[in-house]
C-alpha cells in the first residue's frame, strides 16, 4: 500500500484552508499535481508545496506529519481511503465526510465530522466543540458514522445529530447532545451542564454522574438489553462500556420534556 506523506515545512501565519488535502483528490494525481493543488492562506491562493513537502503520489492513503493546528477542512467530504495526522489539526476536519478513516495523533479543533454522512474519525488527543454537529441554521447534524475522541471535547458535541455514534473519553463541556434527533453519544468522562437539552430522540450514555436538565424525568435503574450490543460494538473499538448488573446499573432519564422529546439519558452507577 503506497502512502502519500505530507510534512509541514512552513507554518501558516494565518489559517490555511486546505480541503484539497483529501484521499479523493490525491488518489489519481501525480506528485507534481498534488504539490500544485490550491490552498487558501487567508485570502491568498497558494500551492500545497508552499507549506508541505510532498512525498508519494496516486494514493488514497495520506499521512501528515507536523503541526497542522491552523489548517482547516482537511478530509472534507472524503469518501474513501485514510488520512492519518501526526500532530494537532485545525477546524472542520472530516466535515461532510461520506466514508473512509481519519486518525489524529494529537489534538483537534472545532466542527470535526460536522454533518458527516458516514466514516470513522478517531482523535487520540483532545477535541474542540461542535463535533458531528449541524452547521448554523442547518437542521441536521451527522447522519451516520463514528467519531471517537480519547481526550476532552468542547461545547455542543453531537448538536442535532440524526444517527451514528460519538464517544468522548474525557469530559465534554456544555450542551452535549443539544437538540439531538437520534444516534448515540457516549460520555466516558462525564459532562458539564445542559447535556441533552432539547433532545427529541437518541441516546446519551454517561459513565460519570452528570447534572441533568430540570426537564428530564427519571425512571429508575435498569440495564437495557441494547447496552450489551453497544458494549460489544464499542469493545471492538477498544472502548469499555459496562453493562453487567453485578458491577452496577444505569439510571434512565427521559426528555427533554420542554419539547416534549423522547430522548434517553443513561447514567452509570456502580
Amino acid at each position: 500500500m503506497s502512502v502519500i506523506h505530507l510534512v509541514v515545512k512552513e507554518q501558516p501565519s494565518v489559517p490555511l484552508e486546505a480541503e484539497c488535502i483529501s484521499p479523493d483528490s490525491f488518489a489519481e494525481l501525480s506528485n507534481d499535481e498534488i504539490r500544485a493543488l490550491r490552498v487558501y492562506h487567508g485570502k491568498r491562493q497558494c500551492r500545497v508545496d508552499d507549506f508541505f513537502d510532498v512525498d508519494g503520489e496516486k494514493s488514497d492513503h495520506i499521512q501528515i506529519h507536523g503541526d497542522v493546528g491552523r489548517v482547516r477542512w482537511l478530509g472534507r467530504a472524503m469518501t474513501r481511503g485514510t488520512l492519518q495526522i501526526y500532530g494537532d489539526v485545525g477546524m472542520h476536519l472530516g466535515a461532510y465526510m461520506k466514508n473512509g478513516r481519519i486518525e489524529v495523533h494529537g489534538n483537534a479543533g472545532d466542527w470535526i465530522g460536522a454533518e458527516m454522512k458516514n466514516g470513522f474519525v478517531h482523535i487520540h488527543g483532545d477535541a474542540g466543540g461542535q463535533i458531528g454537529a449541524a452547521y448554523r441554521g442547518s437542521l441536521r447534524g451527522m447522519k451516520n458514522g463514528t467519531i471517537i475522541v480519547d481526550g476532552t471535547a468542547g461545547i455542543e458535541v453531537g448538536m442535532r445529530m440524526r444517527r451514528g455514534t460519538i464517544v468522548v473519553g474525557g469530559k465534554v463541556r456544555d450542551f452535549a447532545g443539544l437538540q439531538m434527533k437520534g444516534g448515540t453519544l457516549v460520555l466516558l468522562g462525564g459532562a458539564e451542564i445542559r447535556t441533552g437539552a432539547w433532545m427529541t430522540r437518541g441516546t446519551i450514555i454517561s459513565l460519570k454522574p452528570i447534572q441533568l436538565m430540570p426537564t428530564f424525568r427519571t425512571s429508575g435503574p435498569m440495564n437495557p438489553m441494547f447496552m450489551n450490543v453497544y458494549a460489544r460494538q464499542l469493545g471492538k473499538l477498544g472502548i469499555d462500556l459496562p453493562f453487567d448488573r453485578r458491577s452496577g446499573s444505569y439510571i434512565r432519564h427521559c426528555g427533554d420534556m420542554s419539547i416534549p422529546g423522547k430522548g434517553e439519558l443513561f447514567v452509570w452507577q456502580s
Binding site: A197, W198, M213, P214, T215, D256, M257, S258, I259, P260
Partner: peptide, 10 residues
Amino acid sequence: TILRAMVKGE
C-alpha cells in the same frame, strides 16, 4: 426551558 415545558402542561 422549564417555562417551555410548563406552558405545554408538563
